[in-house]
Amino acid sequence: MAAPGPIRAGGVGDIVMYPMETNAAMVQLSEAGKAFGDAWRTIGPLLAADEAKVGTGFDELSSKFRTAYNDIGTKLKELAGEIEPNIKAMGANGNQIVQQKVQLSQQQAAYLRQIV
């Protein structure tokens, strides 16, 4: 990363960013998405297999639970499948923001050197 220290322009409302640390955090965020996706690919089929084994009708409470679970189960599986790409996209967007902030800081520093 080009700027090891904090970036601050000195004005009110500036965002102080530590590019190296922020970039590392965005990489960790992306990795968390991959970790979730890897875990879901492992446990998703196991969960589906266990669900296939379980019937309903043990008692009134289990029947009500199973009905409610079945109503949301499909949506939960769909959403779980979207977590990895969404979190990876957040990390990628964060890294892009860090790069843009560094570039803007460098442009601003170059401009200030010209006018001073």
Rank of each mutant, 00 (worst) to 15 (best):
M26T: 03
V116F: 02
E51C: 11
I43V: 15
A110P: 03
N95Y: 01
G57R: 05
K75V: 04
S30W: 01
A24F: 00
A32N: 13
A48P: 02
R66H: 12
E51Q: 11
T67E: 14
T67Y: 10
K101I: 01
P45E: 13
M26N: 03
G13R: 14
V98K: 01
A9R: 06
P6I: 14
L46F: 07
Q99L: 10
R8F: 05
A35W: 09
I15S: 03
G94L: 00
F65L: 05
L61G: 10
Q108F: 02
G37Q: 04
Q107T: 04
Y69P: 06
L79T: 08
E51T: 09
M26P: 00
G73E: 08
V27A: 05
K88C: 08
F65T: 05
Y69E: 14
T22R: 02
A109F: 07
Q100K: 09
A52I: 00
I72P: 02
G13P: 06
G11E: 15
A9S: 09
T67P: 05
A89E: 10
A25L: 00
L76A: 14
G13N: 14
G91D: 03
M1C: 06
D50V: 13
L76T: 10
V102H: 12
M90R: 00
Y69H: 14
V102Y: 12
Y69S: 11
P85R: 14
M20P: 00
L104H: 15
T56H: 09
I43R: 11
E78Y: 04
L76Y: 11
P19K: 00
A3E: 10
A80H: 10
G33P: 09
A80N: 13
I83Y: 08
Q114F: 06
Q99A: 15
G44N: 14
D14M: 11
A52Q: 01
T42Y: 08
Q114S: 12
G13H: 13
V12M: 11
Y18K: 11
I72N: 03
L29C: 07
R113N: 11
Q103S: 15
F36G: 09
I7P: 00
R41W: 07
K34M: 03
S105V: 07
T67M: 12
A52H: 01
D71N: 10
L47G: 08
A3Q: 08
I7K: 02
D14C: 11
A109V: 07
G94S: 03
V16M: 05
N95S: 04
S30F: 01
A48H: 05
A35G: 13
N93W: 02
V27N: 03
A48M: 05
Q99E: 13
G11W: 15
G91K: 01
A32K: 12
K64S: 08
K75F: 02
E21M: 04
A49D: 11
S105W: 14
M20E: 02
T42S: 09
T42E: 11
K75T: 06
A25R: 00
A39Y: 06
N93Y: 02
F36C: 12
T42A: 10
D59G: 14
L104P: 07
P6N: 14
K88Y: 06
N70H: 01
F58R: 09
K34L: 03
T22H: 05
F65H: 04
M20F: 01
D59L: 10
E51D: 13
N93Q: 05
D59A: 13
V54R: 15
G44I: 09
